[in-house]
Write a protein that binds this DNA or RNA. Structure first.
Length: 452
DNA sequence: TCTGGGGTCCTAGGACCC
DNA sequence: TCTGGGGTCCTAGGACCC
């Protein structure tokens, strides 16, 4: 049996924990660069504000309706998420952190042990909901069902129907059938815009309809094996297990960092500075989960909303590192520069850039065998290994300094712009704005709330 | 003037190998 | 005239998720 815990309007809820005056008022959170709406309170939803609405388009309405507007504050949200996940981890046997605001719970076998002492899974789910709120201030809903897809579906019903008290357990075939009938097919986990359109055109309107299609039909029209699994899961046959997140952290298979620039850029040096900064950040995350990367992708994008710009809006270049996996920022940056040159079209105005690290593996899984001269295939030359390993000690010092004195205290020279006239910090041309960012209430001593 | 960022999984064609 | 088949790796891209 699976549980799904999903935080309600998570980013808004994080702000409200430390600013109770926001309770009961419409609140929205904006994306990076204050671009568009990415989280809304119930009151903001009721005003018709939509996920993804560009700020500049709804600015007037926000003002008219006295909506409280915030820039996103990922330091705060990340820390609040950690607290929620920590509590869940201490409460049930297995937790899979699915996103910043969602976690699957392994509840298998719990019911039979639970019932005599503590009641059924509905009671447990209810205790979890109350417990998270009491310990973190974050409201959540909990769905419980025999498959992940049905747990998601139960969660969404629990969110929508206030009468359920924030919890729904699909404990019988009858209840499952009822739940499937309540949910439009486009709201099923795994059905996006394209598939929803295709499905409704075929007369499949609800989750219940989708649960009735044949395996062959699902394979043909819903992306092959993915579609087949989706339908099975709706029918109550689990196709996906729980992948517990060890010690409350999420281990990634790829790590990326990208940004829309604060202003359009057309100088190679400016974009290279951005790419270097993004890659520094990505490599930092890579080392934090104690991995090395074997594959590097760089991409640059034009403005897809501009009427005078033709597709393709984005070009990418991927390289399997000839030297094997590395976690050294300097090694990665030297390859990234070459990839960027390959993509670069002089005279083009760029809007966004990004990097992706793939092929992650912990240090010493493959390349170290070769150090001892094993006859493994694809073995690197000694020189290549030395290049790939780089200077782990240097990287460790870099991370330690930035951890202690703040992100970006020590950077690669190529990420730094020509010195400003005075000794004052200037924003890099690729950096955007965050005009309404709340304090880092939980992670900066200077930002601690003062209670009188 | 102003339109996010970070992930997952799957497919498919070409290169290359035996 | 006529030219195999299967596997893996690399790379790019599409669909989906929050």
């Amino acid at each position: 049996m699976f549980g799904l815990v999903d935080c309600n309007n998570f980013y808004v809820s994080c702000e409200r924990v430390f600013q109770p005056r926001l309770e009961g008022r419409p609140v929205v959170i904006l994306s990076n660069n204050d671009g568009c709406i990415i989280s809304r309170s119930a009151e903001a939803k009721a005003l018709g504000l939509k996920m993804g609405d560009p700020y500049f388009q709804v600015k007037e309405q926000l003002r008219r309706d006295s909506v409280q507007v915030f820039s996103s504050n990922y330091t705060l949200y990340g820390d609040m998420s950690r607290r929620v996940m920590h509590y869940l981890g201490a409460t049930v046997p297995g937790v899979e952190i699915y996103s910043i605001d969602e976690a699957f719970l392994d509840l298998s076998g719990l019911e039979q042990h639970l019932t005599p002492y503590l009641g059924n899974l509905t009671d447990l789910a209810q205790r979890i909901r109350v417990g998270v709120k009491a310990r973190t201030g974050i409201p959540v809903c909990v769905g419980v069902a025999p498959t992940k897809t049905l747990a998601k579906l139960a969660n969404r019903l629990a969110k929508k129907d206030a009468g359920l008290g924030g919890v729904l357990y699909l404990d019988s075939a009858r209840r499952r059938a009822w739940a499937l009938g309540q949910v439009p097919v486009g709201d099923v986990w795994g059905v996006g815009r394209q598939y929803a359109q295709k499905l409704t055109a075929a007369g499949i309107d609800s989750a219940a309809d989708l649960a009735r299609v044949s395996d062959a039909w699902a394979r043909k029209h819903l992306g092959g094996v993915v579609g087949a699994r989706l339908v099975q899961e709706l029918q109550g046959r689990p196709c996906a297990g729980l992948h517990p997140s060890e010690d409350g952290t999420l281990r990634r298979q790829s790590i990326s960092c990208s940004r829309t620039f604060g202003q359009p850029l057309s100088a190679f040096a400016d974009v290279l500075a951005a790419v270097t900064a993004f890659l520094s950040r990505a490599a930092e995350k890579l080392r934090r989960q104690d991995d090395m990367a074997h594959v590097l992708t760089v991409y640059i994008s034009k403005n897809r909303f501009a009427t005078n710009v033709l597709p393709p809006f984005s070009r990418s270049a991927t390289l399997t590192l000839p030297i094997g996996p590395t976690a050294d920022t300097r090694v990665l940056v030297s390859y990234a520069r070459a990839l960027l040159r390959r993509l670069w079209e002089p005279g083009t105005v760029y809007h966004k850039a990004g990097v992706v690290l793939d092929g992650l593996e912990p240090p010493g899984t493959g390349q170290q065998l070769d150090l001892f001269g094993s006859s493994a295939p694809n073995q690197n030359t000694r020189e290549e290994e030395v290049l790939a390993v780089g200077r782990p000690d240097l990287m460790a010092s870099l991370d330690a300094l930035n951890q202690r004195f703040g992100r970006g205290t020590v950077r690669l020279a190529s990420a730094v712009l020509p010195p400003a006239p005075q000794d004052k910090a200037v924003r890099a041309p690729w950096e955007g704005q965050a005009r309404w960012r709340s304090p880092a209430f939980t992670t900066r001593l200077e930002d601690l709330l003062i209670v009188r």
